[in-house]
Design a binder for these strands. Structure first.
Lengths: 378, 378
DNA sequence: CGCTGGGTTGAAAGCGCATTCATCGTACGC
DNA sequence: GCGTACGATGAATGCGCTTTCAACCCAGCG
């Protein structure tokens, strides 16, 4: 009653288990007649090769992994929430998953995914690590120390995190041009809209992405001859709720209020939009708002959010390429890819609103071309 | 230079491999002092337990799988396409993946995903099947015959496909209330908007979902005392491009043109919207259009698409529950869950347009509550 | 007609871990 | 103080498959 094994098939077909194995691993090395006998027996018995056994014997799994934090906004989990529908909008990690799955499949690998809650990642990662030939990790999903140990044994590529940690600089990295993207975005705010009093709503200091974006923000000031801010004007979490909080704090603060706010990501910016609306602050007239990420939700809100679009799917694809390359040559130099981003000008920064409706060419007026400027890391 | 194994750790810690194993599988059965020694050695060596070996020895993988077709609209793959951005919108399978991942994690499983192209699914499924303890399959992703063989050896749940195939009726199923959803939707068209000349744009006959929806369409006619259509007025593929084709065929056909068209899914309906716009046909004045699925894109188009929303994430969650349940009791009766759907009234059917902009409560006016009616399979 | 070599197939040795079963102490009970 | 039972640990076996290495078969050649 147990699942049939090579032995069963071999017995049934009147051959040795080696031959059964060959039928699956190297069909051409088995005579056609024999092969048919084996295949027939396998079909009859309902034989499915054990991935575990195969993996054990051949010392590889043909599976790639992805560990990502469970980013879901808790709000979005609540079906009664106003944000209910946002959950349907594709988030960061979904895109990466898609990209990795495609690329992995192309290379003959399957994809194992595991989101990690704040709680017990220790177990999670080791678990994943033990099952795959290599895997990608979204930055800060896994404690450095643990990654260090694991990466000694199998290829790991870090996603969306700069090579900051010395202990991890032997890892391959894929990231987007955070610095240049925010630089271009801020430059747009300054040069095209004439803003001089800008604020930056950042995330925790240990968010490499956020920090890089802030540096781009600084650089734009430097470039324009404006006083360079030393640090983000406010720091909060990366959710919509936190974005509301951030903008509230900014506005309630005494002193001059800014004329434009750059948020560390789109979710925060979207949250801020709600809060601003609630307060009667007009966007972009009273305050310009920009985000970063290019989540679909950004186009649905009013005003539509100006942002920087990241090629998230490509992030996943590149991760797989790096993994495969390293699997092929363990000794190669650590690689680091920086993917180009593009500024998406919509109305929240003061750019003219564009028609988001059906037109002659497609259902969406917001084509990928106009209003964008591609930017590559220098 | 090979990855360290239990033997290495055991040697380093001065214990037997059995003890090392116990430290990981049943920590409490090892004295605290010993445990620490082992853990220390493991850390030092960079030991990561081999999932393959563990799986082989314990006869289970703690991994659940998901096989789905690669639904992506080929158009969406073309970065120059007008649909470029649609790719960012969450598609059917992404939601299922999310749902399954969550539920699987809750039960201590990882998730292995594999999309299958039209080409070599044979290999794919066997590959997945050999690596997991059980898996879910989107209907029609895998040939019946193959599924039949595999499902004899491990739990398989069929997603979004009715239990039509006798060879597969021992499988657990999860589906949505296609019939009742389309019934409610069509009823809305007839009763609330007074339509009497409706058309149905269906998909291939072997699409169980599409057929069930059509039967709901028929039922609404029957209920209203209208002549019951024998078959869909047109059948095409499920993509946007095919939707354009379908509506074109419908309009070019001689005889009376319908006043409302129900499409088998949202993607087709969205495509139709483009074609109608191109032809100068006003929606909903000249022709009402409704879809099915509730994809986010449906809300972005103009006019916003009236549709039936499926709880796709729950589909994934329920699949895992069923899998886990069967893993716990192989002998249980085949279960079949039907998830409720809800009609989402937007403007493409003639319902008043609703404000999709920021309001006091959230960035989206299209809350999950108003304009919907929940429907459960009878 | 014996020999050689290529093409097939079989025997056997692991792969790294879980899991009995046996062993060894040792705390306890009488 | 001795037997007992229980807790902790080790030895050994096997999970199902891949992979040499060797054996074998037969065609072709000298």
């Amino acid at each position: 009653m147990n699942a049939p094994t090579v032995y069963d098939v071999a017995g049934q077909a009147g051959v040795s288990i080696a031959t059964v194995s060959r039928v699956y691993r190297a069909p051409d090395s088995v005579r056609a007649g024999t092969r048919e006998k084996v295949l027939e027996a396998a079909r009859e018995l309902g034989y499915v090769p054990s991935g575990n056994a195969r993996g054990l014997a051949s010392r590889n799994t043909r599976v790639l992994g992805l560990c990502f934090p469970d980013y879901a906004d808790p709000d979005a989990e609540d079906p009664d929430s106003d944000y209910g529908d946002d959950a349907e909008l594709m988030l960061y990690s979904d895109e990466i998953i898609r990209g990795m799955e495609r690329a992995a499949r192309r290379h003959g690998y399957a994809l194992l995914i595991a989101a990690s809650l704040a709680e017990g990642p220790r177990n999670l990662v080791a678990d994943v690590a033990g099952r795959v030939d290599g895997f990608a990790v979204l930055a800060r999903t896994v404690p450095t120390e643990e990654l260090e140990v694991i990466s000694r044994r199998l290829p790991v590529v870090m996603l969306a995190g700069p090579r900051e940690d010395a202990a991890l600089d032997h890892l391959d990295h894929v990231e987007v041009a955070n610095f240049d993207g925010e630089l271009a975005l801020t430059r747009h705010l300054i040069a095209d809209h004439g803003h001089t009093r800008l604020a930056f709503a950042g995330s925790a200091e240990d968010s490499p992405d956020g920090e890089a974006r802030f540096r781009g923000f600084q650089a734009a000031h430097l470039e324009a001859g404006l006083p360079v801010p030393e640090r983000p004007d406010v720091r909060t979490g990366l959710t919509q709720a936190e974005g509301e909080r951030a903008v509230a704090e900014l506005l309630d603060r005494e002193g001059e209020t800014p004329h434009a706010v750059a948020f560390a990501n789109d979710q925060m910016a979207v949250g801020a939009l709600s809060e601003l609306r609630r307060r009667g602050v007009r966007v972009p007239e009273d305050l310009a708002v920009v985000g970063f990420d290019g989540i679909p939700l950004g186009r649905l809100v009013t005003p539509a959010l100006t942002t920087v679009r990241q090629p998230m799917r490509r992030l996943g694809e590149e991760a797989v390429e790096l993994l495969v390359a390293r699997l092929g040559d363990r000794g190669r130099e650590p690689a680091s890819k920086v993917l180009p981003v593009s500024v998406v000008r919509r109305s929240s920064c003061g750019c003219p609103a564009r028609d988001d409706s059906v037109d002659g060419s497609g259902p969406l007026g917001d084509g990928p071309v106009d209003g964008e400027a591609s930017v590559t890391q220098s």
